[in-house]
Amino acid sequence: MEEPDVSQPGVTKKFMYVNRRAPYGTVYALESLEVVLIGAAFDQDVSLAFLDDGVFQIVKGQDTAGIGMKNFSPTYRALGDYEVTKLYVEKESLETRGLSEDDLLEITYEDEDDDWAEKPSIHVVKRDEMTQLMAQQDVILSF
């Protein structure tokens, strides 16, 4: 295992990964997740946005045994270990798809600055809040 060289003092940038695709029909969701995990080695201010069909990626209860593909939804729950702790889910996208926050995976992280208290990583936000979050980013990678 070789870690990227992060010894150079750099400026922390705000990175947002925008996920807009359903998980199994195309490879976008899995590719995005892998890029996020790899990119987590670089100390940046990372957040994930789930909108449109991207909200289907984090629906709980996925069972892929019948389709012969790997169920990668449990990996979203490891994001906290990679210090990726901000997952924004668009409310309107959920509603259009007949979903609510209760249909989503429980994804948490342990807050180092708060005696390792377990906190939710998922924040359901309205479209205008999502717009503002996007406007604050230095880099946006859309999948």
Binding site: M1, E3, A40, K70, F72, P74, R77, A78, D81, Y82
Partner: peptide, 15 residues
């Protein structure tokens, strides 16, 4: 088994 992923070294150390 739990996360369907082999953790990166720094994640392994922390865990």
């Amino acid at each position: 088994e739990e996360y369907q992923i082999a953790p990166a070294i720094r994640v392994l150390v922390k865990a």
